Structure formats: structure tokens, C-alpha cells
Amino acid sequence: AEKTGIVNVSSSLNAREGASTSSKVIGSLSGNTKVTIVGEEGAFYKIEYKGSHGYVAKEYIKDIKDE
């Protein structure tokens, strides 16, 4: 099942092309942005936001229960 997560940073969080800190940054998400978690790979979540996919470090995403 898809989960919703909240970007848990004070400034912004980089979204990357792949599940690695050396992957190209494809965008950034500001704190408290809601994202859909579609998968996980190592220390990263694969997320969907406004129709695009990217990878973000798990430690900066807070899971919330689907309402």
C-alpha cells in the first residue's frame, strides 16, 4: 500500500534521480511537503510528488498514517 510521508526538514530536501547521494539532484522539496512513498531502496524512499518520481533520504521523511 502507498504511504504518505512528510518532508521533515527546516529548509529543503533534495530529491534525486537514484537511491544514492551521488545521484543527480532533480528537485527540492520544502519542509512539511506531503509526498507519496511508493517504494524503498536502502536508505532511500522512492517518492511521487506532483506526478514525478524521485529518491529522498529516509531519515528526512516522517511517515504519517493514511487518513
Rank of each mutant, 00 (worst) to 15 (best):
A1R: 13
A1Q: 13
A1N: 12
E2M: 15
E2K: 15
E2C: 15
K3R: 14
K3M: 10
K3Y: 10
K3F: 09
K3N: 05
K3P: 04
T4F: 13
T4G: 05
T4M: 08
G5I: 06
G5A: 05
G5E: 02
G5L: 04
G5H: 03
G5K: 02
G5R: 01
G5S: 03
I6C: 13
I6W: 12
I6T: 08
I6K: 05
V7S: 03
V7P: 03
V7F: 03
V7Y: 02
V7M: 05
V7I: 09
N8S: 11
N8A: 12
N8D: 10
N8W: 11
N8P: 04
N8M: 12
V9K: 07
V9N: 07
V9L: 07
V9C: 15
V9W: 05
V9H: 10
V9T: 12
V9G: 10
V9A: 10
S10M: 11
S10D: 10
S10W: 08
S11E: 12
S11L: 10
S11K: 10
S11D: 13
S12P: 08
S12L: 10
S12F: 14
S12C: 15
L13K: 02
L13N: 02
L13Q: 03
L13C: 15
L13G: 04
N14C: 15
N14W: 14
N14A: 14
N14S: 13
N14K: 11
N14P: 15
A15W: 15
A15C: 15
A15V: 15
R16H: 15
R16T: 13
R16C: 10
R16K: 06
R16D: 03
E17Y: 05
E17I: 06
E17F: 04
E17T: 04
E17G: 05
E17V: 06
G18C: 15
G18A: 14
G18S: 15
G18Y: 14
G18F: 15
G18R: 11
A19P: 15
A19L: 06
A19H: 04
A19F: 05
A19Y: 03
A19C: 08
A19Q: 03
A19T: 07
A19G: 04
S20N: 11
S20E: 07
S20H: 08
S20G: 05
T21Q: 11
T21V: 12
T21S: 11
T21I: 14
T21Y: 14
S22Y: 08
S22H: 11
S22T: 12
S22R: 06
S22K: 11
S23A: 11
S23I: 04
S23K: 02
K24A: 11
K24D: 06
K24G: 06
K24M: 09
K24C: 10
V25H: 03
V25C: 07
V25R: 03
V25K: 05
V25I: 14
V25W: 05
I26Y: 02
I26K: 03
I26M: 07
G27M: 15
G27V: 08
G27I: 11
G27P: 01
G27S: 04
G27Y: 14
S28L: 12
S28E: 12
S28T: 14
S28W: 09
S28G: 05
L29Y: 02
L29Q: 01
S30M: 14
S30P: 15
S30V: 13
G31F: 11
G31E: 09
N32D: 09
T33W: 06
T33Y: 05
T33P: 01
T33Q: 10
T33R: 05
K34E: 08
K34L: 12
K34P: 07
K34A: 07
K34T: 10
V35P: 05
V35Y: 02
V35K: 00
V35Q: 00
V35M: 01
V35F: 02
V35L: 03
V35E: 01
T36F: 11
T36D: 07
T36L: 09
T36H: 10
T36I: 13
T36W: 13
I37E: 00
I37P: 01
V38R: 03
V38F: 05
V38T: 06
V38W: 05
V38H: 03
V38Q: 04
G39C: 07
G39H: 02
G39T: 03
G39S: 06
G39F: 02
G39A: 07
E40N: 03
E40S: 07
E40R: 01
E40V: 06
E40K: 03
E41V: 10
E41I: 08
E41K: 07
E41D: 10
E41N: 06
E41Y: 09
E41F: 07
G42C: 06
G42I: 01
G42H: 03
G42V: 02
G42Y: 03
A43D: 14
A43H: 08
A43N: 12
A43P: 10
F44D: 01
F44G: 00
F44H: 01
F44I: 01
F44W: 14
F44A: 00
F44N: 01
Y45C: 05
Y45P: 02
Y45Q: 01
Y45I: 03
Y45F: 09
Y45W: 13
K46T: 02
K46I: 13
K46G: 00
I47V: 06
I47S: 00
I47Y: 02
E48T: 10
E48G: 02
E48A: 10
E48S: 08
Y49K: 00
Y49T: 01
K50V: 05
K50Y: 11
K50G: 13
K50N: 13
G51Q: 06
G51C: 07
G51E: 07
G51L: 04
S52G: 15
S52M: 14
S52H: 12
S52N: 08
S52Q: 11
S52T: 14
S52R: 11
H53V: 13
H53A: 07
H53R: 04
H53S: 06
G54E: 01
G54W: 08
G54M: 13
G54A: 15
G54K: 01
Y55V: 00
Y55T: 01
Y55A: 00
Y55C: 04
Y55W: 12
Y55R: 00
V56D: 00
V56K: 00
V56W: 00
V56S: 00
A57Y: 12
A57V: 07
A57Q: 14
A57H: 08
A57I: 10
A57W: 08
K58A: 05
K58I: 05
K58Y: 02
K58N: 00
E59W: 08
E59G: 05
E59H: 08
Y60I: 03
Y60V: 05
Y60M: 07
Y60E: 06
Y60F: 14
Y60K: 07
Y60D: 08
Y60T: 04
I61V: 08
I61A: 02
I61Y: 02
K62H: 09
D63Y: 13
D63W: 11
D63R: 09
I64G: 06
I64T: 07
I64F: 09
I64D: 06
I64W: 08
I64L: 09
K65S: 13
K65R: 13
K65G: 09
K65A: 11
K65N: 10
D66F: 14
D66W: 15
D66L: 13
D66P: 12
E67Y: 12
E67M: 13
E67H: 12
E67T: 13
E67A: 13
E67C: 13
E67Q: 13
